[in-house]
Design a protein around this nucleic acid. Structure first.
Length: 202
DNA sequence: CATGGGATTGACT
DNA sequence: GTCAATCCCATGC
């Protein structure tokens, strides 16, 4: 049986809840995919979010209907994938930072030019390369595909999470808006041991 | 129209 | 640990 894609109502909630709840969900594209193990939340109220500058050609999708993809080029090289969250009119999105690979692993190895499973999707630029996601998927609808996100299996408990500051930003760097599946070896980087706080699923 | 700054990665000292 | 690659786009003249 086919997994259902998460619907617009899932994404229309507060971006921190969406970022937390995407951990454990399955991201797929063109026969490749994996389980999301790391996310970060961005909101127009804080300076690290691209939507902080307001409505522009680049940011309008962040303010659009929830459940769309926001894909942009970073450092001239990498495509980074976000899921637009919050109701229409609020500029917010969840950056997908790492996956545990589950499907199409050989195709990922080919696209990445690496063999180790931990090197395929352990970073926001790596996972888009591994899954073949690029700027053409910007503004596409995650509830319809080709890029899709399926919910956790109903029986599955919410994973234990590690929460900490977001990575690689200079503005609003103090906000603890990064979520990781606790203990996963597929996250982009280890969290600072001293600053970590854990959230239990229930 | 010119400029500068990245939500990164991989190679190298 | 340091650092360059490389391009989109927001901003400012």
């Amino acid at each position: 049986m086919r997994s259902q894609a998460l619907d617009a109502a899932f994404y229309a909630r507060p971006v921190l809840a969406v970022a937390r709840d995407l951990i454990g969900c399955a991201l797929t594209h063109s026969g490749c995919g994996g389980v999301i193990v790391e996310t970060e939340a961005y909101h127009d109220s804080e300076a690290a979010c691209h939507a902080h500058v307001g409505l522009t050609a680049r940011t309008h999708v962040l303010f659009a209907t929830p459940g769309r993809a926001y894909v942009y080029r970073s450092y001239g090289i990498h495509a980074l994938l976000n899921a637009v969250a919050e109701p229409e009119g609020v500029g917010a999105a969840v950056l997908i930072r790492a996956l545990e690979p589950t499907h199409g692993i050989d195709a990922m190895r080919t696209r990445r030019g690496r063999d180790r499973q931990e090197d395929l999707c352990s970073g926001p630029g790596k996972l888009t390369q591994a899954l073949g996601i690029d700027l053409d998927q910007n503004e596409s609808d995650l509830t319809l595909g080709p890029v899709r996100i399926a919910p956790r299996a109903p029986a599955q408990v919410e994973p234990t999470m590690v929460v900490g500051p977001r990575i690689g930003i200079t503005k609003a760097a103090e906000l603890p808006w990064r979520f990781c599946a606790a203990g996963s070896r597929f996250v982009s980087r280890p969290w600072p041991p001293g600053l970590r706080a854990t959230l239990n699923g229930a």
